[in-house]
Design a protein around this nucleic acid. Structure first.
Length: 424
RNA sequence: GCCGAGGUAGCCAAGCCCGGUAUGGCGGUGGUCUCGAAAACCACUGGUCCCUGACCUCGGGAGUUCGAAUCUCUCCCUCGGCGCCA
């Protein structure tokens, strides 16, 4: 959520931003119109209230009689006018609220202007693509041959778009999660394990609601949602709090399943690249405003170090204005190379949300004791998303005989196992 | 799910029965005093705005009233007890 004062001060800048983001601008016009009328009515109501407050103090002092009755009658009329104002204002307020919740964050100056993912900028590429000496298989075949992912039976349990890890597949998943969490721990992150289910307030806080509401699982009876990313429960741990300045920065990491309906998506459904439920380890930072840009680079480095540790080739994209998600001011995507599919797979997004989420979730700090509180800045990054990391590991580490070598860094988590081989 | 107690400013409380427009303490900041500090004392310490001032704010919403933290209804949340339960 943007500061309404920023919108009022320079509506043209907001309009340009919406155009850069490839978004309609009518939301801005509706806001400005409703806001102008709202402000007019606010002033009018304030003046009426001023009269009422003054007269209400006089009333008990007046002797019973015609004058008192007259004042009471005119106060009754003023009360009606205030009520009339307020009815209109609550309509306008609803419009204002709706608009402001639907205006995305302002991109940082360093973000390239572009229309869609085709305009993202490759910042760097790391690692050597391996020479196989045979035709590398795609992950569904590898997994099928090793019997480490069961797609068909998972469909019985939950339907298409779900999968069941099995045997060394399940153990590899657990090893990856542990490796990620331990790495973050060593870099000063505190591990948390928040609720998987979140309420609407939390989703508004981080910006998934309302604009992504159709892509989330909704538990209607309790009006709760399955979290689409751990960013939601972790960031909202501090909703409605004023944090001690000394406590910042706060660095949290969490392993948590994430859920996405992926409504209307049908392409590319094979395998585990796009599924309804997936595991992810997330990093979330709560920082002082002046440190957030440096923190974004650190966060990205934290995520990259995991990939390097696994020895997977990857590249870093700087997302353009048209491809960035709603809440972020700047975002890097980390993409792993999958040789079987010969494709880049997004395994991490690292974003600085500046004060956008903090304003929605009301997370503040006090710059000086008893000075007025200010919004902090929030950031988050995946470190990393499990299924796509799994795909990259399987495809990059596959061997001619169909087995998969376990990356060295994961072996301590798999009781020293070096190879995943078929047990059939 | 049932019963009970609660939700007041950064924190803790009072005010509620009996309606008159936010009371105290803690913490904090500044000042007086001091070589300096402590103590003591004084002032300030929720938000918004078109800032000499005004308005708003007592969990949210609605109602009654000239006027609601206070009365009524409703919803939410927290804590405790009981029930159920992996």
């Amino acid at each position: 959520m943007l500061d309404v004062n920023v919108i009022r001060a320079d509506p043209d800048a907001i309009r340009t931003m919406l155009v850069d983001r490839n978004k309609p601008t009518d939301v801005l016009d509706r806001f400005l119109e409703a806001d102008a009328e709202w402000r007019m009515l606010t002033q009018s109501s304030n003046e009426l209230r001023k009269v009422r407050n003054a007269e209400s103090l006089r009333i008990p002092k007046l002797p019973a009689g015609a004058e008192k009755d007259g004042v009471i009658a005119s106060m009754r009329e003023i009360g009606d006018r205030i009520k009339g104002n307020e009815e209109r204002m609550s309509v306008l307020d609803g419009i204002r609220e709706d608009c402001v919740l639907n205006i995305p964050n302002i991109p940082h100056a360093s973000v390239p202007v572009g229309r869609d993912s085709g305009d993202n900028v490759v910042v760097c590429e790391w690692g050597e693509r391996r020479e196989f000496g045979f035709a590398p298989k795609e992950h569904p075949e590898i997994a099928e041959d090793l019997d480490i992912i069961d797609f068909d039976r998972a469909v019985k349990v939950a339907g298409s778009g779900f999968y069941c890890l099995k045997g060394d597949g399940a153990r590899l998943e657990r090893a990856l999660i542990s490796y990620f969490l331990d790495s973050h721990h060593d870099r000063g992150y505190t591990e948390v394990f928040p609720p998987v289910i979140v309420n609407k307030e939390a989703l508004i806080g981080t910006g998934q609601y309302p604009n992504l509401k159709d892509d989330m699982y909704h538990l209607e009876r309790d009006d709760l949602f399955l979290n689409p990313t751990a960013e939601v429960p972790v960031t909202n741990l501090f909703r409605d709090e004023i944090l001690e300045k000394e406590a910042l920065p706060i660095k949290y990491t969490a392993y948590l399943p994430s859920f996405r309906r992926e409504a209307g998506r049908h392409a590319d459904t094979r395998g585990i690249i796009r599924v309804h439920e997936f595991n992810k380890v997330e990093m979330v930072r709560f920082v002082l405003p002046e440190t957030s840009w440096a923190a974004l680079e650190e966060l990205r480095n934290d995520a990259e170090s995991l990939i390097r540790g696994l020895g997977l080739p990857y590249r870093v994209l700087l997302l353009c204005t048209g491809d960035m998600s709603f809440s972020c001011a700047k975002c890097y995507d980390l993409e792993l190379y999958a040789p079987g599919k010969d494709a880049w797979l997004e395994a991490s997004s690292c974003s600085n949300f500046t004060d956008f989420q903090a304003r929605r979730a009301r997370i503040k700090y006090r710059p000086e004791p008893h000075m007025r509180s200010e919004f902090i800045h929030t950031l988050n990054g995946s470190g990393l998303a499990l299924p796509r990391t799994m795909v990259a590991v399987l495809e990059n580490y596959q061997n001619r005989d169909g087995s998969v070598t376990v990356p060295e860094v994961l072996r301590p988590y798999m009781k020293g196992q070096e190879v995943i081989a078929s047990r059939r």
